[in-house]
Design a protein around this nucleic acid. Structure first.
Length: 585
RNA sequence: AGGGGAUUGGUGUAACGGUAGCACGAAGGUUUCUGAUACCUUUAGUAAGAGUUCAAAUCUCUUAUCCCCUACCA
């Protein structure tokens, strides 16, 4: 009961059993396990892909097997080289390593063609000259059987000849397809004589104009897996209906072959894809957001592409931790977006150096600053770099008569539970001094412009003052952050909120744009920050991706955006800190 | 003539015929120079019904609900 029993998800259990039974060769040989991640290079990777990568890669590593990265580039119309590079970059950023060279489905076009010819010769495939519309009609409806194409029983030699013409670019787009001869009455639509090849007279990003025909997913995918020796071909739930076809094609090739001529038959297994509240995993939706300028490109930090998470300051570890927590099941689960933010905070809490930054500044003037000496003097304070990491040490920050503090840390008429500044209230300036407010100034519109305080010289460093004669120590309820007004830098800070305001975007009206959060981006241009941001300091970790991340004390986690210049920094808010005060209000 | 999957606290996930557990959340509390973090306590569940069995989340049947399938996309 108490001993930790290792929990095995359903795919691990399948693999365990297959290894024991010797399904892949020698019983007990774990190193044969081979998995793959097969992206189509037609867009950016998103966090759903991170889950798929994590599962397939994790399995390969766990069993000491092989993990393959293969681009499924079977459709020249949609694919571009640019995406190949971005996908590789994103996978590497995650910290995932593939074994051997990157593979391309297009490398196997010749082999696939030969196998297709074999199927025609066996009477298992035929060239159909029906129009796309006719094919659709003949396929029938879900509840009713389809009808056979008039070309279904044409002579094998005729199909062979026509297929060669298709390959040689002698046929126009859309005029002919190669179809598998299976069952037009199947209750599984995928088995109603699926198309194996279509004519596409368009250049391919790798094979150029070599081919005029391109294989369809169902025909190609299992063959790619087979060629590479993939044992476990993992995909998402919507491919369950395709598995009979996946198996049919490999069986068709193997039909009539002796055992040692048979090609390898991988096992396809499906798991549920990732869904996260307040987001949408649809590539189509994402493309629309970019093309219609609802966001600023594929790496807009509000998107859920890996590129956008990177730019926003998410760490690979936080994404890894999140997808690990999702689990591997066949249940269509909806993950709470808070889980992802929580994983981020867990990681950054431990690693991010603390800094002071005032996002919406008002001036604080210490009216009795001269009590401690020269009224112009600047004192250097030791500030803790990371309370979670003693080795991070401290840094010196300037403190003087005039400071910037956060507008929301002062109230004219504060409620009792407001542990910050108001007239007559005392707070600790973090790593500075204790100050007590006695006055404030407003402009004509009633906006606070200055807060006037006295400081207690006995609280240097933010420490408690010495006890009084009765041995009692004065206490303070709140601590606020600040920066010295005459030695700080201005910066832009981009505050992001969730892109959609609905848990399931588009669910209510059918249009996800109706659920866009119009306040998902707020740009703050007058922020006051410690000068220490200007150059990387020794306490900052060496982030593998080179992105400098920080915790702004009391406000959240932030990173330096790529739009920054040497002197003008731009920050992205990665996540807020948890805020029980905000909840209480 | 439809077919394929799924259903365990609010959420995610274990338990594979033998004590329904874990994590996150939420609520309360302790600590605290971040209303953060950390720590403690509490919270709440086998979709419904029937059957098999000494014993059912687990096996069988019925019902309900949700997801997927009718591209020359993947």
């Amino acid at each position: 009961m108490t001993e930790a029993v290792q929990q095995r998800h359903f795919i691990q259990q399948i693999i365990d059993a297959d290894i024991e039974s010797g399904k892949w060769g020698t019983p007990g040989d774990r190193s044969v396990i081979t998995t793959r991640f097969p992206p189509e290079p037609n867009g950016y990777l998103h966090i759903g892909h991170a889950k798929a990568i994590h599962i397939s890669h994790g399995l390969a590593r766990e069993y000491g097997g092989t993990f393959i990265l293969r681009f499924d580039d079977t459709n020249p119309a949609a694919e571009e080289v640019e995406f190949v590079d971005s996908i590789k970059h994103d996978i590497e950023w995650l910290g995932t390593h593939w074994d051997g060279e990157v593979r391309f489905a297009s490398d196997y076009f010749g082999q696939m063609y030969d196998w297709a010819v074999e199927l025609i010769e066996k009477g298992l495939a035929y060239v159909d000259e029906s129009t796309p519309e006719q094919i659709r009609e003949m396929r029938g409806k879900i509840e009713t059987p389809g009808v056979d194409s008039p070309f279904r029983d044409r002579p094998i030699s005729e199909s062979l000849d026509l297929f060669a013409q298709m390959k040689d670019g002698k046929i126009e787009n859309g005029k002919m397809v190669l179809r598998a001869k299976i069952d037009m009455a199947s209750s599984n639509m995928n088995l109603r004589d699926p198309v194996m090849y279509r004519v596409v007279n368009a250049p391919h990003h790798r094979t150029g104009t070599q081919w005029s025909i391109y294989p369809m997913y169902d025909w190609a995918h299992g063959l790619e897996d087979s060629i590479e020796g993939v044992t476990n071909s993992l995909c998402s739930l919507e491919f369950e209906d395709h598995r009979p076809l996946y198996d049919w094609f490999i069986d068709a090739i193997n039909q009539g072959r002796s055992d040692d001529e048979k090609i390898h038959h991988p096992q396809q297994t499906e798991f549920s894809r990732l869904a996260i509240s307040y987001t949408n995993m649809s590539k189509r939706y994402m493309r629309q957001l970019v093309q219609e300028n609802h966001v600023d490109g594929w790496d807009d930090p509000r998107m859920i592409t890996l590129a956008s998470f990177r730019r926003r300051g998410y760490t690979p570890k936080s994404i890894e931790d999140f997808v690990t927590g999702v689990g591997v099941t066949k249940f269509n689960a909806m993950m709470d977006i808070g889980r992802l933010e929580g994983a981020l905070r867990d990681d950054l809490n431990k690693r991010a150096p603390r800094r002071m930054a005032v996002l919406d500044p008002i001036k604080l003037v210490i009216t009795n600053w001269a009590d401690g000496g020269d009224d112009d003097r600047v004192e250097m304070m030791d500030a803790i770099n990371n309370p979670e990491d003693d080795s991070a040490g401290t840094r010196a920050i300037p403190f003087g008569k005039e400071l910037w503090i956060e507008r929301e840390d002062f109230m004219i008429d504060p409620p009792k539970k407001f542990f910050r500044l108001g007239v007559g209230r005392e707070v600790r300036l973090r790593c500075g001094y204790w100050v007590k407010c006695h006055d404030f100034k407003q402009d004509l519109d009633g906006n606070i412009t200055e807060v006037h305080c006295t400081y207690d010289p006995d609280t240097r460093g933010g420490n408690n003052p010495p006890p009084d004669e009765e041995g009692k120590v004065r206490k303070v309820k709140g601590t606020i952050h600040w920066v010295y007004a005459h030695d700080c830098i201005d910066a832009e800070v981009r505050m992001f909120d969730r892109l959609y305001k609905a848990e399931k975007p588009g669910k209510a009206t059918g249009n996800h744009l109706d659920d866009l959060n119009e306040n998902s981006l707020e740009i703050l241009k007058n922020c006051k920050l410690e000068r220490s941001f200007l150059t990387k300091t020794p306490d900052e970790p060496d982030w593998a991706d080179g992105i400098r991340r920080f915790q702004f004390e009391r406000t959240g986690y932030f990173c330096i955006d790529q739009d920054s210049t040497q002197s003008d920094l731009v920050f992205n808010r990665t996540a807020t800190l948890r805020d029980s005060w905000a909840k209480q209000r």
